[in-house]
Amino acid sequence: MISVQNIKKSYGDTLAVSNINFSVEQAELFGLIGPDGAGKTTIFRILTSLILPDEGKAILNGYDVVKDYKKIRQIIGYMPGRFSLYQDLSVEENLNFFATVFGTTIEENYDLIKDIYKQIEPFKKRRAGKLSGGMKQKLALSCALIHKPEILVLDEPTTGVDAVSRKEFWDMLQRLKEKGITILVSTPYMDEASLCDRVALIQNGQIMQIDTPDNIVKSFKHELIAVKTENMHKLLHDLRNFSDTHSAFLFGQNIHYTSINSKINNEELKHYLQKNNHKNIEINKIQANIEDCFMELMT
């Protein structure tokens, strides 16, 4: 169980995070979703006892991150933001090193990392620096898990990793969760929010909303439509100049549009677009996603 109360931290004059409150249940997969510089890493470093909060309190499985930092360091597995393993050591040597540092062996906890480690085991003699992005990430996760931590803290594990490896990584996290490990993960990719049990949307050092992904999506208060025409760039321009527009954002092949009115008048909108020489106008009502919600909260 993790409980974070009123955490605040500044570096010099810059306020990094403030008013941070959340709690995480055992075996819950909790996500911190937000762009770079939002304060995710600061929160994680406070929780892993690497930095001290200016104000507030954080308790991990009964241990205070400030007072009981020694205990904290035994029960957590931590994967920092950048790849931080020894590039000049082989896969096996890295894992062995972290096992001995935590006073255990690979064999002792092999069943926990088996699923993940099996995939990189064929390359166990290879230097970590020569692994591909996806493999590095699997090795880093194996190293973070080797001492059977109760809580796993993963800082942007999927940043810069391609879509396939990202998918695999989230599958691994699901399986770890089933083994009873509490997982705290941060990511700048909004689409990964739906893979968490609950998420906190964070921006500029503030948590904007905490809930299950479903509830967050449900709480989107506007009617949302996807608009598409032949000239998307012009469409975006024209929509932004439309007097009824609340927001218009590109989303892949479509533009997600909300109106200042509680109900969108499709006909009126279509008329406006036709007047502006748009052809093949498609308008569909859609369900908001996390990214829509995030941007709504930002504005």
Partner: peptide, 13 residues
């Protein structure tokens, strides 16, 4: 620089 110090600090070493 490599960020490994972070992991060492978080370990029981």
């Amino acid at each position: 620089e490599m960020g490994t110090m972070e992991i060492l600090l978080v370990s029981p070493l």
